[in-house]
């Protein structure tokens, strides 16, 4: 298990080699000794390879910004970044999980959609639900007209098969 943090276009892999007596971490095959000296109100002091660094740190939900020695560094918190997610599926068909009526189509055939983009709104059991794209892709077919009803398991939207991805 190595920890990943992204800075603009560069990924850093941090491998913890030891925790005691001091933290030792490998980045790009170089071992560094790291010590957290102080941390208060956005001001941090750390020691790296015996040298003290004092700077500011701003942590938000998606980024960590470091200001150090008159330089600014911005990191993505990758866990917060959307990643390929198996729950969204790779299938080409979006099916109804319950019977209902199609209220609105938000896309047309040929529309390019991103993962999570809304496709159609359906109404079932007096509740309107928006169905989101299970993956990025192109809309191949819309099976249900606005106002039409459908049964559980009916195909609502077909997406064009995804191009095979390089592993």
């Amino acid at each position: 298990m190595s920890y990943e943090i992204r800075q603009e276009k560069a990924d850093f892999h941090l491998d913890i080699a030891a925790r005691r007596p001091t933290l030792e971490v490998t980045i790009a095959q170089t071992l560094h000794r790291v010590e957290e000296v102080a941390d208060s109100d956005g001001r941090f002091t750390i020691s790296v390879d015996g040298r003290l660094f004092r700077g500011w740190r701003l942590i938000t939900s998606d980024r960590i910004e470091i200001r150090l020695d008159g330089r600014s560094f911005v990191f993505d918190r990758r866990e917060g970044v959307a990643r390929a997610d198996a729950t969204t599926g790779t299938g080409d068909e979006v099916r109804a999980e319950m019977p209902g009526t199609l209220v609105t189509r938000h896309v047309d055939v040929g529309t390019q959609v991103a993962l999570g983009e809304r496709l159609v709104t359906i109404e079932s059991m007096k509740l309107q639900v928006t169905i989101a794209a299970p993956r990025a892709g192109t809309i191949a077919r819309l099976h249900i007209a606005e106002g039409a009803t459908f049964e559980r398991g009916a195909i609502l939207v077909s997406m064009a098969p995804a191009a095979p991805q390089e592993g």
């Binding site: 941390d39 470091i66 560094f73």
Partner: peptide
């Protein structure tokens, strides 16, 4: 050092 400062803040 900035990478470590960020990591230690995460």
């Amino acid at each position: 050092a900035a990478v470590f400062a960020a990591a230690l803040g995460d």
